[in-house]
Nucleic acid binder design. Structure first.
Lengths: 240, 240
DNA sequence: CGGATGCTTGAAGCTGCTCAAGTGAAGTGG
DNA sequence: CCACTTCACTTGAGCAGCTTCAAGCATCCG
């Protein structure tokens, strides 16, 4: 079940090896060890990735760049941390990883067959894929937590709608199975704030709200709202 | 590298089987399938867990309860989702999972040796453990993102200090390797807000700040600050 | 030494929270 | 089947913390 960020993530457009870190690489007997210098990238979003790494020394920063230029710092990685775990599941990096100082990494070898998103395969493969999905979802939520209320709700409704579609159910008319309070705690909002947001989205003509029954009226409008970065001095919704 | 939540997570104190869902369990030929009824728990934080599950039908809510009574909803899980992945790494559930309606789950079998946090073991075990660490870190950050600025920074400094200690380095005097901007993006704050928070913590006598060089002066004070839930009508810091 | 970058501080505006009340839905017992 | 209780949801008013915009100061590196 892929995650669908409401804002598209862009890969770097610069040449991937412009900081020619590969010139400085060298191997040791304990697998492919590598030195990465400050402000050089170990990985860029979208780059091919073959295996995760163990950070041996130094500090990395992993981050996402969104199409509107916003940067989401995912984490700082220090010695002992495992990075690039998406290599267990897919063949391209999902975030960029840059060295904040002189770093040392060791490549880790993977001895489990690719955990592909297919329904076939061993339970272990499914589980590893499930773990990665959890990471993606948490990452997306981390990003959503900085967006204004209406964007957050719009993003959630779109995501839910998409999940409905993937399961062969109606994407534009469904029942939210959780209480307002649960959804509010999920979105990190006060219940009252969530309720007001439902009212705004409804009065804007984007969705129809009848208690837990939701109808998606204007998908494009919802997408436009969800994709808006914060603080663009655009009224959040009509009747805001 | 364990994650150290600044607020302790409490397990449920009620009897774990008080809603006697096990009375209604039944198995099928395709592994241990189980029906969970509304508001019954599949798992409670701290309960023994043997394997992850695949959600076949219904909706689950996973959440954490903090010692101050606050609830953090982690996710809603719908058919196709894999839940309880911590069974790959440890023997107890890290969150509670409750059914929002009538649910159906299938137990998944694990055929990889336990991925324990030890430094020994295969790379694959290390990677699975690393994935789980990533999930824990993201979960903790999700929770931090609802806390006020000073709590967030205090939590981060304590976590960094603890990581220093674990690596045999000074826990009370260290250099933050990242720029203010990076840390601000990590904590989901404006750079100015982070800067002001450093100033407040410094003037409160909790830490010594000299650009990137940090000294922890009052660990207990920092802990008290970090552990404070939001909105208790306590002044955030002296000189707030 | 000088430019650029990073960090700090100030002031104003606005989003979301808290407190509070009112409305609606749902479940229970008579 | 209906009155009553309880819980969920909505709406309102006031407040506070964070962001933005703007300027000044420090630090780094050529």
């Amino acid at each position: 079940m892929p995650v669908h960020p409401t804002r598209s993530i862009i890969a770097h457009s610069e040449p991937h090896f412009s900081d020619n870190w590969h010139d400085r690489c060298h191997s040791t007997d304990t697998g492919a060890a590598r030195i990465i210098h400050r402000s050089q990238h170990l990985l860029r979003a979208g780059d091919p990735i073959e295996h995760p790494w163990l950070v041996v020394a130094g500090t990395f920063k992993s981050y996402l760049l969104y199409a509107d230029g916003e940067e989401q710092v995912l984490d700082f990685h220090r010695p002992g941390d495992i990075i690039g775990v998406e290599a267990m599941v897919q063949e391209s990096g999902h975030c960029s990883i840059v060295a904040l100082d002189t770093c040392n990494v060791r490549a880790l070898s993977v001895d489990v067959p690719d955990a592909h998103p297919t329904q076939t395969g061993s339970d272990t493969q499914k589980i590893i894929y499930g773990m990665y999905q959890t990471i993606l979802r948490l990452t997306e939520r981390l990003h959503m937590s900085v967006e204004p209320t209406d964007q957050r709700l719009a993003s959630y409704l779109l995501e839910f709608s998409e999940a409905q579609r993937r399961r062969g159910l109606k994407p534009d008319a469904f029942r939210l199975p959780m209480r307002r309070r649960d959804l509010a705690l999920y979105l990190s909002l006060a219940t009252e704030t969530l309720s007001r947001s439902f009212t705004r989205l409804s009065k804007s003509g984007l969705v129809a709200v009848d208690n837990h029954e939701i109808g998606i009226i204007d998908v494009e409008g919802l997408r436009a709202l969800a994709g808006q970065p914060k603080n663009q001095n655009i009224p959040r919704c009509a009747n805001g």
